[in-house]
Amino acid sequence: MSFISHLINGISLGSVYAIIALGYTMVYGIAKMLNFAHGDVIMIGAYVVFTSMTGMGLNPILSILLSMVVCTVLGVVIERIAYKPLRNAASPLAVLITAIGISYLLQNVALLLFGAGAKTFTNVVTFPSISLAGGKLTITGVTIVTILACIVIMVGLSLFVGKTKPGRAMQAVSEDRGAAQLMGVNVNGTIALTFAIGSALAAIAGVLLCSAYPSLTPYTGAMPGIKAFVAAVFGGIGSIPGAMIGGILLGIIELLSKAYISSQVADAIVFAVLIVVLLIKPTGLFGKNIQEKV
């Protein structure tokens, strides 16, 4: 029974990674850059919820909506100010280094505003726990809500990208920016939209993460951000289903390692898995082998 419990918790943690990984993978697919500040947007999102609930007394739903708005604006502003001017830079390293700089900037701004001490995050999920198998297996409300949120986001995003005009424009920009422009797609607008969606998802991920693991510090987003990046690469960076499957697998591997091997080396195992996957399949599980056709 404890195995099933660990498995479900793993899926739940993995769902958070998956939601974060979606932001990484979409931005990579469309803007062709790794936004290493993405994890820190999660942390900002969590602080917005924390402050609006405990400081301003807003209800949880409003707090989450406010957090999504703040993160969306933040994501778009970061893109506009820091990344867009470097879009045609000679080296892709320029924007990568900038992203790392933004990451530290966000962490230090949070440090300045909220201090280094850990805030105890109030669980915003009021969903009741479920008891199964005669009380031997308990699934908390947060776990259920996290998994459900992940499924809803996955389905919604797939429909958006596959069936709507802006979604199709995203696919077109991801495949061939120049050709998409020739069709009349505003590439800058499409990239901004991608950042907006990714950052709004980061806000949701932040809330879910801190509801399950309630200690909030300026560095809360860093490690989940890196792991979500691993999940995105694991699943095949640029692929939406890949981010989802990669995230969930990573969560399961992490929690099972913690439970059965050692909680100290669990992270090492997670990264070792990435290395093995990349050795066997360099494009990740769902990555495409890009063939250059002339």
Partner: peptide, 9 residues
Amino acid sequence: EGRRIFAEL
């Protein structure tokens, strides 16, 4: 040049 169709669509 080179057609540049959207191969995945």
